[in-house]
Nucleic acid binder design. Structure first.
Lengths: 214, 214
DNA sequence: AGATAATTTGACCGATTGGTAAACATTACA
DNA sequence: TGTAATGTTTACCAATCGGTCAAATTATCT
C-alpha cells in the first residue's frame, strides 16, 4: 500500500526528501511567475521533470504544494526584520536592514514574488500568518523604533510606515523587476542596479531619519 | 448581420457605450483581484450581470478585454508623473507627486493592482508600453531631477531610483493593502492610514533629499 | 407598422483543469 | 533472494476553460 508523505513510517526516505525538494523548487518557479490560480499542476510537473500523478503522490493537492512553499519561505523572509537589534546603533541597524532586504530581493526574487502574488490577490492562504506572527514581529520592532525616536536617536516618525517603506522599496526590485529593467534600459539594468539602489536607499533613509546636529 | 464593436457604423450606439463600460468595470474587478490567467470570462460575466456570449459580443476575446482595460488605465496612471513640473519648486513638486500617487493608491486601488499583477507576472501584455512610453516619460523627468541636483536645489542622488522609491512606497498601500491592514490592526487600519502614510513619506523624502543649510 | 440591423441567449464544442484508480516498477529489508 | 512497502505511470474522470453558433429578442429607422 502506498502511503504518501510518510504518514506511516515516521522517517522520511531519501527519495521522499529529494523529490519533495525537487517539486517545491519547480512549484516556486511556477507559482511565483503566475500566481496560485494561474498555475497548473501540469506546468509544475513539467518543470520538475516528473509526471503529474507522481507529483500528487507527494503533495495530495495543488493547495498542499502552495502551503508547503509558503511555510518554508515565510521564516527565511522575515529573518532580516528579526535580526533588527534594539541594542544596536540606529543608523547601523537601519542601514543593514535595508542591505539585507535588498540582498533577499536580489538573491531570492521568486520567493518575493510568491508573497507578492499572494498578498496582491487578497492573501487568501496566508491571512492568519499576516495577522498573527507577522503583526507580532512588526509590533515588537516598531516599539524599538519608537523608543529610538523618543530617545532622540532618530527623527520622530511613524515606525510602521517606516517599515512599510523599507519593505516596499526593497521588494520593488524583485517584484517589479521587468519594469525596473525596462525603464533603466539595457545600459543601466545590469547587475549594478542593486548596488545603485542600495546607495540611493541608504542615502534616502539615513538622510531622512537621522537627526542632524543643529 | 451582427457586427460587434462598431466595425460598420462609425458611431458607437448608446447601448454599446454603456455595455462596454459595464464590462470593463467588471473586468477591472476580476482582473485586478486574480490576475489575467487566474480570471475567467464567466466570473467577469457574472460580475457584469450579463451572459458570457454577450460579453464576447463586445470583446471578442479575454485578451481584448484586458487590452482595453490596460489602455484605458495606463494614461490615467501616469498622469501624476506627467504633471511633474521642471520649472516648479523641487520640494513642492516632490511633495505633491507623492500626494498625488498616494491619492491614486487610495482612490483607484484596483487600477494599481491590475498593473501590479501584470508586471509581477513578467508584463507579458505591456512590455512594449514599459519600454516605450513609460521609459521615455521617466527618462524625461529623471533629467529634470538630475538638473535640480546639479544646480544644488536638492541632494545629489540617482533620479531613477528616486522615482522607483516613490512608486513603490505609494503603490504599496494599494497593492499590499491586506498586509498593511493586517499589520496595523483594526485600531490603526482606518481611513486615516493614508494621511499617516503621506505625512511619513513627505518627511522621509523631503528630509532625505533636501540640502540642508550648513 | 414593417423591415432591417443590433443585441442577447441557450446549447454546445474541443481543450485543459485538478484529481483518481489501478496496474506496474523499484526499493529496502528480512 | 523473497516479499512487502514505496514509488511511478498509463488511462481516465467530471468540471471548467475560452470560445462558437444559430436562433430568438430587442432597438432603430422609414
Amino acid at each position: 500500500m502506498a502511503i504518501p508523505r510518510a504518514a506511516k513510517t515516521q522517517r522520511r526516505t531519501r527519495i521522499q526528501e529529494e523529490k519533495e525538494e525537487q517539486i517545491l523548487e519547480a512549484a516556486l518557479d511556477v507559482f511565483s511567475a503566475r500566481g496560485f490560480r494561474g498555475s497548473t499542476i501540469d506546468q509544475i510537473a513539467e518543470v520538475a521533470g516528473m509526471s503529474k500523478p507522481n507529483l500528487l503522490y507527494y503533495f495530495r493537492t495543488k493547495e498542499a504544494m502552495h502551503r508547503a512553499l509558503i511555510d518554508r519561505v515565510l521564516y527565511t523572509w522575515l529573518e532580516p526584520l528579526r535580526a533588527f537589534n534594539a541594542e544596536g546603533n540606529p543608523e547601523t541597524e537601519i542601514r543593514s536592514y535595508i542591505r539585507r532586504k535588498l540582498e533577499l530581493a536580489r538573491d531570492f526574487p521568486r520567493e518575493s514574488r510568491l508573497f507578492a502574488n499572494e498578498v496582491l490577490q487578497g492573501a487568501p492562504h496566508i491571512e492568519d500568518e499576516l495577522k498573527g506572527p507577522l503583526k507580532q514581529l512588526v509590533d515588537e520592532k516598531a516599539e524599538v523604533i519608537r523608543a529610538w525616536a523618543k530617545a532622540g536617536k532618530i527623527a520622530k516618525c511613524d515606525p510602521y510606515h517606516l517599515i512599510f517603506s523599507i519593505w516596499s522599496t526593497t521588494q520593488h526590485y524583485a517584484d517589479f523587476d521587468v519594469q525596473v529593467r525596462a525603464v533603466l534600459g539595457q545600459e543601466h539594468a545590469g547587475a549594478g542596479r542593486f548596488e545603485d539602489a542600495a546607495r540611493f536607499l541608504e542615502q534616502l533613509f539615513i538622510g531622512g531619519l537621522m537627526v542632524r546636529p543643529a
